[in-house]
C-alpha cells in the first residue's frame, strides 16, 4: 500500500483544539439563541463558519498525508475500526428516537387511552380520549392534522435512496476495476440522488407545515415525525456533502483500486443512512 513500515503517529496538531473552539462558540451562540438573546444567532453562525473552515483544514491535512503515502496498512485498519464504531454510535443515537416512537405507540398512548396499568390518568384527566395512531394526545395538541401519505413523496424517496445505494456500489466497482468513467459517473449519480432526496424532503416539510397542519408541535406524532425525519435528513445532507468531497477527490485522481478507505467510509455511511430510512419509511410513514 505504501512505502512506510512504521505506524504513523502525527506528532502535533492544532486542528482538534481549533475544532473544540469552534464547537464551543457554536454552542454558546446556540444556547443564547434558545434563551432568546439577540446576540445568539450571530455568535452561532460565527461558530458554524469557523467549524466549516477548521473541518476543511483538518481533513485537508489527513488527505495530504494519505496522498503522501505515509499511512501503512495498519493505519488503514485503525481508520476502518474508527468508522465502524462511529457508525454504530450513530445507530444508537437513532435508536433513542425510535425507542421514543415505540414507547409512545405501544405504552404511553394506550395508557392514556385507558388500557392497562396506568388507566387512572385516563379516568381522572381525559376520560374522552381514545387512543388511535397517529395521535397528538388527549388535548389534541395544535389541532387536527393530516398525514404525509406513505405512497407519495416518501415512497419516491425510498426509491431514490435505494437507487443511490446501488449507484455508489456501481461506482465502487468502477474504482476497483480502475474504470474512471464508471467511478465518476456512478458518484455523480449518487450525489444527485442524495440532493434530490433532500430537496423532496424539504418540499414535504413545507407542504406539511402549510397544507397539512402537521408541525413539530402536533403532539407526540409531530414530535417523533420531525425528530426522526429531521435528524435523518440532516445525516443525508452530511452524507451527500461527504460524497461530493469524495467525487472531487476521485476527479483529482486520488484513491487506487486497492487503497481507497475514504471512499469506502463514505459509502458505508451512505448505506447506514439508507437503512435508517427504511426504518423510517416502515415505522413513521407506513405503519
Amino acid at each position: 500500500m505504501s512505502g512506510s513500515n512504521s505506524y504513523y503517529v502525527p506528532h502535533e496538531s492544532s486542528w482538534p483544539f481549533l475544532t473544540t473552539i469552534s464547537i464551543i462558540v457554536l454552542f454558546i451562540g446556540g444556547a443564547n439563541y434558545m434563551n432568546g438573546y439577540a446576540s445568539g444567532t450571530s455568535v452561532m453562525l460565527l461558530g458554524l463558519a469557523f467549524l466549516f473552515i477548521v473541518t476543511y483544514g483538518w481533513f485537508s491535512t489527513v488527505i495530504r498525508e494519505s496522498e503522501a503515502g505515509i499511512y501503512n496498512s495498519q493505519v488503514d485498519i485503525s481508520f476502518r475500526w474508527g468508522m465502524v464504531w462511529f457508525i454504530f454510535s450513530e445507530v444508537m443515537f437513532f435508536s433513542a428516537f425510535f425507542g421514543a416512537l415505540y414507547y409512545a405507540r405501544e405504552l404511553s398512548l394506550p395508557w392514556l387511552g385507558g388500557e392497562g396499568a396506568k388507566a387512572a390518568t385516563n379516568i381522572f384527566l381525559w376520560p374522552q380520549f381514545e387512543n388511535v395512531w397517529p395521535s397528538n394526545g388527549p388535548t389534541n395538541a395544535n389541532g387536527e392534522f393530516t398525514l404525509v401519505k406513505a405512497g407519495g413523496i416518501p415512497a419516491l424517496n425510498t426509491i431514490l435512496l435505494l437507487t443511490s445505494g446501488l449507484t455508489v456500489t456501481w461506482a465502487h466497482h468502477g474504482l476497483k476495476e480502475q474504470n474512471r468513467k464508471k467511478l465518476i459517473y456512478g458518484l455523480i449519480m449518487t450525489v444527485l440522488l442524495g440532493f434530490i432526496f433532500v430537496g423532496f424532503q424539504a418540499y414535504e416539510y413545507m407542504h406539511a407545515y402549510s397544507d397539512l397542519n402537521l408541525k413539530m408541535t402536533s403532539g407526540i406524532y409531530g414530535s417523533t415525525f420531525y425528530m426522526l425525519t429531521g435528524f435523518h435528513g440532516f445525516h443525508v445532507t452530511l452524507g451527500a456533502v461527504m460524497l461530493t468531497v469524495i467525487l472531487f477527490r476521485c476527479i483529482n485522481g486520488h484513491f487506487s483500486g486497492d487503497n481507497h478507505f475514504g471512499f469506502e467510509a463514505v459509502a458505508w455511511y451512505w448505506h447506514f443512512v439508507d437503512v435508517v430510512w427504511l426504518g423510517l419509511f416502515v415505522f413513521v410513514y407506513w405503519l
Binding site: 421514543a100 404511553s108 397528538n136 394526545g137 413539530m216 409531530g222
Partner: peptide, 15 residues
Amino acid sequence: GTMFFTASGGGDPAM
C-alpha cells in the same frame, strides 16, 4: 414545542 415528555400531547415524562 415538541411533546415527547408531555402527557397532554400523548408523550410521557416517564419515557
